[in-house]
Each structure stands twice: as C-alpha cells, then as structure tokens.
C-alpha cells in the first residue's frame, strides 16, 4: 500500500499489511454496529505506523466509536451532514468567497477524503499527517471541517482566480498543496472553532447537530478523558510490557504531568491538547526506538 514508507523491504510491508487488516477486523468484530468505509484504513495505517498493533487497536476502537462514528454508518447520510458545516463557516468569514463557491456549484465533496481520513489520504508527508492527528485527537469531532475551511480561506486568491466552474474549482481545491503552513492553519482552525462553535452554525444554517453521533457522544468522551491521567495509558503499557527506561524518552512525560494541572483548570480543551500531544509524543518515541532497530536510518529519514 502506498502509505507505507518508501524503501521498506517487501517482507516488512507484507507484515504491516497483515497487521493493518488485523487491527481493522478486530475493531469491526468488537463493534458490529460499525461499517468499513474506503478511507478507514488511511486512519488505521497512520496509527499502526506510529504506535504499533496493540495500541493502534485501542486507539482505533475509541476513535471509531467517537470521532469517526458518523462515517461508519451503513450509509453516508451523517457524513454528508458533517460536510454541510463547511459552507456556513466560510459564509461567516468571507461571504464573497462563499458566494463564488456556491455559484460554481462545486459542493463539498472535494473535502470528503480530508474529513473521513483526517487528511491521511491526501498528505504525502507523514510528519504533517501526524501533526494533524495530534490536533484532531485533542479536538472536537468537527475540527477537520474547521481546518478544511481554513485551507479554503488560505487559498482564497487562487480560488477567485479560477474559472467559476464546478470542474475547475473542484480540481483546484481537491489537490492540497503539500507546503501548507500547518501550524498557522491549525491555530486559525482553533480560532474559527472558538468564534463560530458548532451550535452557532447549526442554528444559523439550520443544521441539526443532534443527528450526529460523533458530536452527541463527544461530551461523554471528554468526561472520560478527564479522569485519565495524561500518561496513564502509556504508563500501563510500559508496566505491562516491561519496557526499558531508555526507550521512554526522558522528560516527555514529566513535562505533560506538571503542565496539565496548571493549564487544566477551567480549560478542558487545553488540557486535552496537552494530553493528546504528550500521548503521541511518547508513542512516537516508542515507534522511533522500535523502528530504529528494525529498519535502519535511511528509512527513518523518509518517515520523519
């Protein structure tokens, strides 16, 4: 599969391919209410490459029941519903651009793969994918749509220079430039989210947020994470696996656990961001340590 690092030996690709299938089947077996969609394995492979098979199953299980839940219905109705938030955000920020897009009849399907794969399907550099995954892990399920809005807004001039035609606008927008300033866009997406939160959009755009399972279960998801120490999952795994301290990446967890209480009071989002980031950073250290032994330096260079 294309998402495996270039230069990886065929035998290791075959192992990863098998693990990829296994983790998806395991999660689907545990959750008979969920349905596979094309794009699901873009999420699964990102997790697998980063944290390995066992943790990937746990993460995919949780994400499938929360952030990805709407995409895993038997039909696309709820997915289309989520996409429907895109235009109202644009309308709030740049009405002229919004009107241009409406006139072109481009629709929102150009952003479909962005949404349901968390951009994993369209980004060629794994480090960008990981950065966005960190962001989305610590955010509301609608955040990929807010990021889609910031990407369209960021390319406003290009869009406006294009012929106002469905095919031309779709072509332009569906090809994500690979050199986007992700840090800037992440900040802007968060700012848009704070300024135009989903309930506000739902009211203005006659969208019904109650039909989204991802959104309606987000509060309980957040509550459950409140009771979780930032590094409790990793600590448990480390204890069970008996990993040596040298693999752990000293400092990483200490930072998270001292910062979280200070920032956490009254600001759930920041707390979650720290949790998400520290968890992934810790996991990345694992992955690096493991892969370094298996693949050799040139593969690592391409990965990160």
């Amino acid at each position: 599969m294309k998402r495996f690092p270039k230069g990886m030996p065929a035998s290791q690709r075959a192992v990863l391919q098998e693990q990829l299938t296994d983790i998806m089947l395991e999660v689907l077996r545990r959750n008979p209410q969920l349905h596979y969609y094309q794009g699901y394995h873009d999420v699964a492979v990102s997790l697998l490459l980063l944290v390995g098979e066992r943790t990937a199953i746990a993460m995919l299980h949780t994400l499938s029941n929360h952030h990805l839940r709407d995409f895993m219905d038997p039909t696309m109705d709820r997915t289309k519903h989520i996409l429907n938030y895109l235009m109202p955000i644009l309308e709030q920020v740049d009405r002229e651009l919004h009107d241009f897009l409406i006139r072109s009849e481009v629709g929102t399907i150009f952003a479909l793969s962005w949404l349901i794969t968390w951009y994993g399907h369209v980004l060629s550099e794994f480090r960008h994918t990981l950065r966005l995954y960190d962001f989305f892990l610590a955010s509301h399920p609608l955040m990929p749509i807010y990021l889609a809005a910031t990407i369209v807004l960021h390319r406003e001039k290009e869009v406006r220079r294009t012929e106002c035609d469905m095919a031309m606008v779709h072509l332009l927008l569906s090809r994500i430039p690979q050199d986007l300033p992700y840090e800037l866009l992440i900040g802007q997406a968060q700012a848009l989210f704070d300024r135009y939160p989903p309930p506000l959009l739902a009211k203005r755009a006659a969208l019904q947020s109650r039909t989204s399972l991802s959104i309606s279960t987000f509060q309980s998801f957040q509550r459950s994470t409140l009771h979780q120490r930032p590094d409790s999952v990793l600590r448990r795994i480390t204890r069970e696996g008996g990993c040596s301290a040298s693999r752990r990446g000293p400092g990483e967890w200490a930072v998270a656990s001292t910062e979280a209480p200070a920032l956490g009071r009254g600001n759930r989002m920041v707390k979650m961001a720290v949790w998400g980031l520290s968890a992934t950073l810790g996991a990345a250290v694992f992955a690096v340590a493991q892969t370094a032994m298996q693949w050799g330096p040139d593969v690592l260079l391409q990965l990160f």
Partner: peptide
C-alpha cells in the same frame, strides 16, 4: 499502488 478513490477524482 493505486490508492482507492474517496468520493470523486478528476
């Protein structure tokens, strides 16, 4: 290594 298509390509 053609990736699957999500939605439509052009």
């Amino acid at each position: 290594d053609c990736p699957h298509t999500i939605g439509v390509e052009f």
